[in-house]
Design a protein around this nucleic acid. Sequence first.
DNA 1: GTAGGTGCAAATCGTTTGCTGATTC
DNA 2: GAATCAGCAAACGATTTGCACCTAC
Lengths: 148, 148
Amino acid sequence: MKDDAQARLEELIDKLRERDHRITPQRLAILKILVLSDGHPSTEQIYGQIKEEFPTTSLATVYKTIAMLKEMNEVLELGFAGDSNHYDGNKPYPHTHLICVKCRDIIDPEVEDLKILPQQVAQRAGFRLVSHRFDIYGICPRCQSEEQ
Amino acid sequence: MKDDAQARLEELIDKLRERDHRITPQRLAILKILVLSDGHPSTEQIYGQIKEEFPTTSLATVYKTIAMLKEMNEVLELGFAGDSNHYDGNKPYPHTHLICVKCRDIIDPEVEDLKILPQQVAQRAGFRLVSHRFDIYGICPRCQSEEQ
DNA sequence: GTAGGTGCAAATCGTTTGCTGATTC
DNA sequence: GAATCAGCAAACGATTTGCACCTAC
């Protein structure tokens, strides 16, 4: 495991302990999957991966673990209508996503920061800023080359 | 009905005719609701409103009409995981939204255009741009004042 | 008259919940 | 040992679909 993934995993474990959450084998496996994923795995993908190690694990456990991480603000949820949610356990704060509409791959592009724009827009309308989401949809290079 | 809403309604009717879609009373009512809404009504809200005029209308008809408009690119769909989708029939192209996380009100804020940013980000990663979505979440003035 | 639309009910899919037996601490 | 958790199945809510009847053109 890469150093930064290892460090993030230990950080998460510490935070669970702080809150008196138990470190069960299933939770540990889910945390590992999250910190080791480059992409933004969906619940189904996490479920599929964890079944390799713990075949009896249920989807409910995946959901419950993620709900716990959400409550701790240690995972970023990318919800999609009519599709599984995807999760980022490494950068649990708003950031730009580039999403392929064909293969549904999600990457973090290099992008100039939006900086104070969300705060500015919210303030101007009298809103107290909570968060924001910026998704760019396109066709990824691989899917482009596969077009006829 | 305001002039611009009237004009948009006629535009939509023309586009339906062009494609040999029939102008049924239910469809007309849904189109009216869409062009007259300042906000971004959800399917449930559209359903609720249309029932006042046509009590027998079904949710399925609302969904089917919206699916037709989506296919014609005449409505912008704002999908939310675990919530009804919302629709904008007046500005059926990507634009920034400001969303209250408490009352779920959605407004179009005055905002400097993102301009070429989505295209720039997509291009840099080799993606062909399809669309984008920029949502800012916060607490609206009314909900702030209602906080004890 | 006929292609297309409406409305109903059933099916679907992701997610959540209730509960019982098992496990971490 | 006790509080928490895992796993199962049932419940849920938004959306979609199949189909018989109906209606705009």
